[in-house]
Write a protein that binds this DNA or RNA. Structure first.
Lengths: 126, 126
DNA sequence: CCGGATCCTCTGCGATACTG
DNA sequence: CAGTATCGCAGAGGATCCGG
C-alpha cells in the first residue's frame, strides 16, 4: 500500500504514541492481498514467492513483493533467502504474530462463505 | 470504494458465479472506514450520520456517505430517513448480517490492542 | 528466481457547490 | 441535515528493464 493510514499509525508508534489501536490494527490488514496471503501461508506453511504468486493470479509481481515486504516489516511473515546455483529462492512463512491472526482470517472467510451460501439460496427464487 | 475488487465480486455474483468467496469477503471489509463504522454501530446502536461523522474526524463527508451507501447495498447496515420540520435526519444501524460481523471486528481490535501493548513493552528498552 | 527502479496511466478521494 | 455531481490532483499500481 504505502498507505496513508499505515504511515499515520507507524509515525505515531515511532513517537511512542500508542493511542491509535484502530488505525494500527487496520494498517496490518488493509493492504491489497494481505489477508489472502496470510490465509495461504497459514494453511500451506512455508511457500516460495512463485508459489504464492501462482495462487494469486490477479496480483502483479510488483504488488506481491510490496505487500510481502510490508508484512515482513510488520513482523507478520518471515523471509528466508537461499541462493541456488542459477538464481535465488525466497521462502515465506508466518511468524508467531502472523499465526495469531489466522483464527481471525479463518473466521472472516467462513463468514463470507456462509453469507455467499445464503445469497445463493435466495437467488433460487429469481 | 467503487473498488475494482468489489465490482469484480459483484459481477460474478450477479452472474450466479459464487466461486469468489475470498474476493467477496474482502469486498465487504475493504472499504475505507468500514470496519470502524461497523465497530461503532455495533457498540453504540443506532446513530445519526452526523454522530458517525464526529467519531471519524478524518473521514470526509463524501467518503462517509459513499461507504455507508455501499454497506447499505451490501445489507450490512440499515438506513432510516426521517424528515424533520427544517431538514432531515438519517439513522444508521446494523442489520443482522452486520451484527454477525461484530465478533470478528472485536477480535481484530483486541488483537491490535494486544499487539500494540507488546510493542510498547519492548520499546521500554530503547 | 526475486527484488528494485523508472515510467506512465488510471482512480480514489478531497474540495466545492447545488438539491431537498 | 444528508446526499449527489463536477473537477482536479496526488498517489496507487501495472509494464518493463535491469542487477544479483
Amino acid at each position: 500500500m504505502t498507505d496513508t493510514a499505515r504511515e499515520y499509525a507507524q509515525e505515531k508508534i515511532a513517537k511512542k504514541d500508542f493511542s491509535c489501536a484502530k488505525e494500527y490494527t487496520l494498517s496490518m490488514f488493509s493492504g491489497k492481498y494481505k489477508i489472502v496471503i496470510l490465509y495461504h501461508l497459514g494453511h500451506n506453511g512455508t511457500m516460495r514467492f512463485s508459489q504464492i504468486q501462482r495462487l494469486l493470479d490477479h496480483a502483479s509481481h510488483k504488488m506481491l513483493t510490496q505487500q510481502l515486504k510490508e508484512m515482513a516489516d510488520d513482523n507478520l511473515v518471515d523471509r528466508r533467502e537461499e541462493t541456488i546455483n542459477n538464481g535465488k529462492a525466497v521462502y515465506y512463512s508466518l511468524t508467531d504474530t502472523g499465526e495469531s491472526l489466522i483464527p481471525i482470517v479463518d473466521d472472516m472467510f467462513s463468514w463470507g462463505k456462509n453469507r455467499l451460501a445464503s445469497l445463493e439460496v435466495s437467488s433460487d427464487f429469481n
